[in-house]
Design a protein around this nucleic acid. Structure first.
Length: 517
RNA sequence: GCGCCUCUAGCUCAACGGCAGAGCAACGGACUCUUAAUCCGCAGGUUCUGGGUUCGAAACCCAGGGGGCGCACCA
């Protein structure tokens, strides 16, 4: 960079190896880390390894509790076990140490007797810090007070923690720290661990249900030439070798339907999608969508599938289909309401609405209800806006809102009984959208017309409208069978089942502004 | 993007313009059945950052930063 001579190396090296005395005797974070690093040096000086490569575990802690949880107070068994986990609590009574060991499955007490392990080993165990990873061999017992414990015969350090874990009782409550340092959150907060277990069970349940119905799981590109399949502002990136701007996908839809054209008949993908929009308790810029497509099916099949997927997920993740929705216990196993969007708006306004009505009539209805309209909006868009403003938040119980206007549904097939509406639904629960599905438009000529309408909107300044996807049209020209399709916001389903109110609670590493370190 | 709230020891929180403190963790000591062990002792601070007001600011004012909530945006 410049010609300034660098400081000589030996001026900066000398005080790095041995921490200064005042750091070792203090008790701030720097002092704490220095002490623990000094312990590591001491362990190595003893010829022991603070970070060994592996440990043979015979049982998880839950397995031990399942097998021996009912032994009597004071009982000693000859069950010899090897367990591993993180040291969470330590109670040192002099010649006995009680410690709490936690692994992924459970937490169990360690009973460490100086007479049993010997003076040297006892001293090194007493020197362990909360947060250290350890491996233990011993026998299963219960203390005089009946606490299931492992009587330690030997203990090895598996990984030394240099940084202290948060408060053993209060945990970590600062949301900023919890989301930035999810590792620390997971160490101390049981609720966080549980939420991600529910998320896992939810996604696993979807896979099981779909697999059981003959769907196969596929992976389609994240980098798109054209960000289609939804109305959303995309993230733009650039491929250097091709010298090409690409978009991160905003939906899975168009590639999955190409596979239906190819004859795969039943496909699904659970994948990350990206929308360059605002963040809230219900929106993260990257989130997880499940989309599935089934040949020879229409919207009614997909409505039934949606109900089954979510009800099964509740059963698999929670063991019940009765869940708390905004303080009200609702059984998901009961049939879900179906109602047309135009009927909900009519109910809310007392006036019949339909996309065939003159634009001026709908504009004035919107104005009466405080909904302002952009000049380019057609009747269908105004009806949707009225629905969102007046009806959406009232839908607490699971409700399939159906019959969306054609104008706002460029990929959905027209209703067989009403050419101004589509065979489409959105699922709402506690006022939030969870899913979207329809009978898929498979007529290539009509799809081209719909795309051209989108293109016109885009040209008119709608930066969420999509352009014409020529390759998708080419695929449709080969013939797509009648098809029903579904998209489900997996984060929102997991939120509902985990009972959390922010999407950041159900995404391990939510998007945050950069931290100043 | 706008409004409101918030930021103090590693963690959880006090201090209402007047000496920055407690609990946990840490450190030293006692204790062979604890359960957030207990008891005694000791130590630990850029009060988010930068300005300003004041004899005196963690507190009040201004600007900036992080976070939360709401609104806006959002198939």
């Amino acid at each position: 960079m410049n010609d300034t001579p660098q400081p000589s190396a030996d001026s900066s090296v000398t005080d790095v190896v041995e921490p200064a005395d005042d750091v070792l005797t203090g008790s701030g974070l720097a002092a704490e880390k220095a002490k623990r690093l000094a312990k590591i040096a001491g362990i190595r000086a003893d010829g022991r390894e603070p970070y060994p490569y592996r440990f043979d575990r015979s049982h998880t802690l839950a397995e031990i509790r399942a097998a021996h949880g009912d032994i009597e107070a004071g009982a000693e068994t000859d069950a010899h076990v090897a367990v591993a986990g993180r040291l969470m609590l330590k109670r040192d009574t002099g010649k006995l140490i009680f410690a709490n060991l936690r692994d992924r499955s459970d937490q169990i007490q360690l009973f460490i007797s100086k007479a049993e392990v010997g003076d040297d080993a006892f001293a090194s165990i007493a020197d362990l810090d909360l947060g250290d990873w350890i491996g233990v061999e011993g026998s299963v017992m219960a203390t005089r007070t009946g606490e299931l414990s492992i009587k330690v015969q030997s203990l090895v350090l598996l990984a030394k923690a240099v940084r202290p874990i948060p408060d053993k009782w209060k945990g970590l409550t600062d949301t900023d720290t919890r989301f930035r340092q999810r590792y620390a959150d997971l160490i101390v907060n049981e609720d966080a661990r549980r939420a991600f277990q529910v998320r896992h069970a939810t996604i696993q349940s979807f896979r099981t249900t779909l697999s059981g119905r003959g769907y196969i799981e596929v992976e389609t590109p994240v980098l798109h030439m054209e960000a289609g399949g939804a109305h959303a502002r995309p993230f733009v990136t650039h491929h250097n070798t091709l010298d090409l701007d690409l978009y991160l996908r905003i939906a899975l839809e168009l590639h999955l339907k190409r596979l239906i054209v190819g004859g795969m008949e039943r496909v699904f993908e659970i994948g990350r999608i990206f929308r360059n929009e605002g963040m809230s308790t219900r929106h993260n810029p990257e989130f997880t969508m499940m989309e599935c497509y089934q040949a020879f099916a229409d919207v009614s099949d997909i409505i039934a599938l949606t109900e089954e997927l979510i009800t099964n997920a509740a059963r698999d993740a929670l063991g019940t289909t009765t869940i708390d929705l905004d303080g009200e216990m609702v059984d998901l196993a009961q049939p879900w309401r179906q109602v047309r969007m135009i009927d909900l708006v009519a109910e809310a306004t007392g006036v019949e609405v339909h996309p065939s009505q003159p634009l001026e009539q709908l504009r004035s209805l919107a104005a009466q209800h405080g909904v302002s309209c952009a000049p380019r909006w057609g009747s269908g868009k105004i009806i949707e806006e009225l629905f969102e403003a007046l009806c959406e938040h009232t839908l607490v119980h699971p409700t399939f809102v159906t019959g969306h206007p054609v104008e706002i549904s460029p990929l959905a097939r027209v209703d067989r009984n009403d050419p101004q509406l589509t065979e489409r639904f959105e699922l709402f629960i506690v006022g939030r959208e969870f899913a979207n599905g329809y009978s898929e438009l498979n007529d290539p000529v009509e799809q081209r017309t719909r795309f051209e309408d989108e293109q016109a909107a885009k040209d008119a300044g709608d930066d969420e409208a999509t352009g014409v996807d020529e390759d998708y049209l080419r695929a449709l020209e080969y013939g797509m069978p009648p098809t029903g399709g579904l998209g489900v916001g997996m984060d929102r389903v997991a939120m509902m089942l985990a009972g959390v109110s922010s999407i950041k609670e159900i995404i391990l590493f939510p998007t945050l502004r950069p931290e100043v370190l």
